[in-house]
């Protein structure tokens, strides 16, 4: 978060980060997707993902991270909220109460028979909101002097 001191050499840290970030992100996706069956879910998945980005921020400076991940996190949070809301509204089209979820087993190419639930879409909203919110907070505070 703090501006990294350019004089110190962070080579080990930065190299390790390059590997570890992907591991964390993959783990966070695992947490996210398996949330319906095992511990995890949108919230903790989102926190983990943003943890990965924070690691990037620590290893590099903010400008670099922004150029790697050019997201507007406020918009990301808004998008997540919109998705969560739309999954709720979607149930209205099927003449069931707001936020009624459904699930089913679908034959997908590559993956075979998979259980898909609309609740995951809602969780996706949560996931995006959590990333958006934490990154907005951290970036905003980090950018101020």
């Amino acid at each position: 978060m703090k501006k990294t001191n350019l004089k110190t050499n962070d080579l080990i840290f930065q190299t390790a980060t390059k590997v570890i970030v992907f591991l964390i992100i993959i783990y966070s996706w695992h947490l996210f997707f398996s949330g319906h069956y095992t511990p995890g879910g949108g919230f903790i998945g989102g926190l983990m993902t943003s943890g990965a980005i924070v690691l990037l921020l620590l290893a590099y400076d903010i400008k670099t991270v922004v150029s790697i991940l050019p997201f507007d996190y406020i918009k990301m949070a808004a998008l997540g909220l919109l998705i969560a809301l739309l999954t709720g509204i979607g149930s209205l089209f099927y003449n069931v109460p707001f936020l009624t979820h459904t699930f089913g087993y679908v034959e997908l190419p590559l993956l075979g028979e998979t259980a898909l639930a609309t609740a995951v879409l809602f969780d996706l909203g949560v996931y995006l909101v959590v990333i958006g919110v934490t990154m907005t907070i951290i970036q905003t505070i980090g950018e101020t002097e």
Partner: peptide, 8 residues
């Protein structure tokens, strides 16, 4: 709900 993680 088709889920096994009750909390979620």
């Amino acid at each position: 709900a088709g889920g096994k993680n009750m909390v979620n």
